[in-house]
Write a protein that binds this DNA or RNA. Structure first.
Length: 311
DNA sequence: AAGACGAAAGTGGTTGA
DNA sequence: TCAACAACTTTCGTCTT
C-alpha cells in the first residue's frame, strides 16, 4: 500500500548541516537528515487512506471521509455547513418556499457557530497562537499542540481568573518544552502582551492541572540554535555541545541560567577554534550579560582543566 | 582603543519557617 | 507572609593586547 505520510512543509535541505539528504521515515513519522542524523520534523500525520480502489467507481464508493481533523480550527473542522446552492440532495431546484427556509437555516447556523463561550474562547486563542507562532518562527506542530493544550485548559475551566493571553503564552511555552523546540520564556513573553511573570504562572497551572510530562530543558538544543545565529560552523557547534554535556555531568549547570552556560560553551569552543569573538557579543545573542558569560566561562574552564593559554 | 577582568551594590525569584 | 539566600545584572575602575 502506498504510504501517504507527508511533511507539513517541504524540507529540501537540513538546516543544521546543509545536506540535501533529507529522508522521510514513514514508520516513525519523522523527517530525518541522513547526513547528520537529526530529526527535522516529528509526529507527521498520515493523511492517507487505508483502503485501495481499483477503478473510479470503487473509489467513489469507498471514499467516506473529508479532510483530516484540524486542531487549528475552533471546532476542529467537524461542523456541518448548509450549502449555498439552491438545489436539493438529488440536484433538483428547491421551490421558493424551501429556498426561503434554507436561507433562514443558514443564517441561524452562522449565528450559532461560535456562540458557546468555550468555542469563542478557543477561536480567539487559535488566532492569537497563530500570530505568536509567526512572530517566533515556530513550526506548525507547536501551534497545534498549543491549541490542544488551550482546549484542555478550557475544558477544565482553567482560564477563569486569568487572561486568555496568559494561557495562550503558557500553552505555547509548554508546547515548546514538550516538543523540545528551543525557545526561552523571555522570548515568548516578549512576543506576547503578557509579562513573563504572568506567563510563568499560567504555565505552572497548565503543567499541574493537565499533568503534563515536560522533559527537562536540554541546553544542547540551545547550542544548536544560538551557534547558528552566531554564524559558527558545525564543528564549533559540536564542540560547544560536548562542552555543555560535560558541564552538566560535572553539575556545573544546576541552578544556573542555561543561557549563560550555553553562551560560555559557545564562547570557549569558538576561542579554541581560533575564532575571534567577544564575551559581550555572545552575551547579547543568548540574552545574558558579558559578566555572566565570564563567570560561567571561568567555572567551566577551571573544572574541565582547559588550558587557558589556548584561548 | 577595545576587550577582558573583578569587585561591589542592586534586583527579582525561590525557599523554608 | 516574610526573611534569608543564591544567581544574575549593572556599573565602574583596572589590566592586557
Amino acid at each position: 500500500m502506498q504510504n501517504m505520510i507527508e511533511p507539513d512543509e517541504d524540507i529540501e535541505e537540513c538546516p543544521h548541516c546543509g545536506s540535501e539528504k533529507v529522508v522521510l521515515d514513514t514508520k516513525k513519522g519523522e523527517m530525518v537528515c541522513s547526513s547528520c542524523g537529526r530529526i527535522l520534523q516529528r509526529k507527521l500525520k498520515d493523511r492517507g487512506k487505508e483502503w485501495r480502489a481499483y477503478d473510479p467507481m470503487e473509489k467513489a464508493s469507498k471514499k467516506r471521509t473529508g479532510p483530516p481533523v484540524n486542531d487549528l480550527i475552533a471546532d476542529r473542522g467537524m461542523s456541518t455547513f448548509i450549502s449555498k446552492t439552491r438545489k436539493d440532495g438529488k440536484g433538483k431546484y428547491l421551490d421558493p418556499d424551501s429556498q426561503q427556509r434554507v436561507y433562514k437555516l443558514r443564517k441561524w447556523q452562522r449565528r450559532m457557530r461560535h456562540t458557546g463561550t468555550i468555542e469563542r474562547s478557543i477561536a480567539f486563542a487559535i488566532t492569537e497562537i497563530g500570530t505568536m507562532c509567526s512572530r517566533l518562527a515556530l513550526p506548525k506542530v507547536v501551534a497545534e499542540s498549543a491549541a490542544n493544550l488551550y482546549r484542555e485548559a478550557s475544558k477544565k475551566d482553567l482560564i477563569r481568573g486569568r487572561s486568555k493571553e496568559a494561557v495562550v503564552a503558557g500553552s505555547l511555552y509548554a508546547s515548546c518544552r514538550i516538543l523540545e523546540v528551543p525557545r526561552t520564556m523571555r522570548e515568548i513573553s516578549k512576543a506576547s502582551v503578557i509579562s513573563s511573570k504572568e506567563m510563568r504562572r499560567a504555565y505552572r497551572v497548565l503543567v499541574d492541572a493537565l499533568d503534563l510530562e515536560v522533559p527537562l530543558m536540554n541546553p544542547e538544543r540551545f547550542v544548536e540554535r544560538y551557534g547558528r545565529e552566531l554564524d559558527l560552523n558545525s564543528d564549533v557547534i559540536k564542540d560547544a555541545r560536548d562542552l555543555v554535556t560535560r558541564a552538566r555531568e560535572k553539575h556545573l549547570t544546576i541552578g544556573r541560567n542555561p543561557r549563560g552556560v550555553v553562551g560560555a560553551c559557545l564562547y570557549i569552543a569558538a576561542r579554541l577554534d581560533g575564532i575571534d569573538m567577544s564575551q559581550s557579543q555572545v552575551g547579547e545573542e543568548v540574552g545574558v550579560t558579558e559578566v555572566t558569560i565570564r563567570n560561567r566561562y571561568k567555572e567551566i574552564v577551571e573544572e574541565m582543566g582547559i588550558e587557558s593559554n589556548n584561548l
